[in-house]
Design a protein around this nucleic acid. Sequence first.
DNA 1: CCACTACTGCGACAAATGGTGCGTTAAGAT
DNA 2: ATCTTAACGCACCATTTGTCGCAGTAGTGG
Lengths: 203, 203
Amino acid sequence: MPPPRRRPGGRTARIRRQVLDAVLAELGERGYDGLTMDSVAARSGVHRATVYRRWGDVGGLLADVLDAAGDDAWQPPDTGSLEGDLAALNREIHDALTAQPPIVAALIAASFRSEQADHAQRRLWEDRYARCEVIVRRAVERAELPLGTDARRLLIAATAPVYHQLVLLRTPPGPDLPGQAARTAALAASAGAFAVPPPAGDT
Amino acid sequence: MPPPRRRPGGRTARIRRQVLDAVLAELGERGYDGLTMDSVAARSGVHRATVYRRWGDVGGLLADVLDAAGDDAWQPPDTGSLEGDLAALNREIHDALTAQPPIVAALIAASFRSEQADHAQRRLWEDRYARCEVIVRRAVERAELPLGTDARRLLIAATAPVYHQLVLLRTPPGPDLPGQAARTAALAASAGAFAVPPPAGDT
DNA sequence: CCACTACTGCGACAAATGGTGCGTTAAGAT
DNA sequence: ATCTTAACGCACCATTTGTCGCAGTAGTGG
């Protein structure tokens, strides 16, 4: 027998959007502990019991929001140079983390609250960094970087300072933090700091 | 009139230690939302009402734990070279973040839960990074680094990848993440990536 | 050693929150 | 159009959270 087919139809989708929007709004306004099943239900206009049944708990809500966030068509910037790409990427990150209300920062913080949200957050990170690897590939093609540069490590080195400063340290960043972090990483990269040894076989 | 004089004596101090230990234990075992006033009171053997009276809420508990954590005699490693110091520092961070139970990671995550805890966490970061600046000063004295190197930016660039990988991304780190991050930062630093322009006056 | 009082323990209480069975409504297929 | 079934709304209960007054205990100064 076929699995019972779902009904992705109009009402279900509408309710989902209402609830997800309410989650983001609550998260932005009341920050962190403000996100309860109750407040989400009240704001969305959907009944408490419905929210409980479809999402189970706060972690389910967050996971759904995070998964929905990954379903976009985002592409990393393409400025024509490695440092330019990294700087533009960092500026996007910086803007997202300092936007008002601070939805992205609140989402990151909230993802610690449950296993489900944690997994969804990891999927989102993985997706974003995977999409960014093209930046490094293009730089290698332009001969800005040596072959065998570890894309992931380079991307993390470039972006980590921005996240660290804004999410964990939460102190006012120095001027042009995105640009400086990008320049530092690009410099280290062109010096071969992220070279990965070939798999010990052929060229 | 003078404020009523406090009693920092035996019982009060003992109760505080019991409660703070219970906070750490709960945080390690039950991770994030597991930390409630009730569970702390139960585990510590202190009455609920006492915990409410002295600490007010979960944020108060976390803030007290964080402040207590800053009252130690920790000093950054001194290995004789910049890269060695940074690598040793990163290894300490790595070990603290991957220890079982994951108390440090849980503390960082939990510090998002309230204003009070947030402020305490910032004080702790500030204190730690300030203590680490001596690493950069020593490197400048050894002429490993140019004068006018921005200590804070260098330290953040060196340590951020470790925090980012273990706290935010939460994916298995590559081999020798601490060492690689340290080498990258040291390389960029000796190339002058963290030079700060002199204040536009004299040498 | 004694008096003073800050601090803790106790239990009862009000209020908010989390979670669930059951009848009703609306979506999707024939 | 109408039938089937998934999804929703309502009412309800259980648990947790936070507060208060009072009595007892133990530091602190004389």
